[in-house]
Amino acid sequence: MVKSVCPYCAVGCGQNVFVKDERVVHIEGDPDSPVSRGRLCPKGSASLQLTTGETRRLEVLYRAPYASDWEVIDLDTAMDMVAERVLRTRREFWQWDVEGKRVRRTMGIASLGGATLDNEENYLMKKLYTALGAIQIENQARI
């Protein structure tokens, strides 16, 4: 059994995740949690279906320009293609300065999302984007 936290709203209910031969078989409230005392809401109780339901996609999909449908591609190729595009667009829209003021950034890349992610993930994203010079970084805190 593994201790976890519900991924839905910000109350932060404790969850106990039960695992049996490498598969998550049940998720329920963590009675030790001082915030939730073992209780969950309907969404929290549906965490098992969220994480193991068959609506979860497990392969990387790619849509070529003008294509009418997806094609499955493997993860590493996709990573490489994205890296290429990031560098290309970064260079294409690079600005050293604006109106005589040094900016050292690219306006070509933007990112949206972060409130459903871990702090560590937000940290790496902000660190990498800032190093890339991308500043149009946003998340649900503003939606």
Binding site: E92, G108, A110, S111, G113, Q140
Partner: peptide, 11 residues
């Protein structure tokens, strides 16, 4: 057309 790349992550 001034921003060409977009990451949408968990949103």
């Amino acid at each position: 057309g001034k921003c060409k790349g977009y990451f949408v992550v968990g949103e």
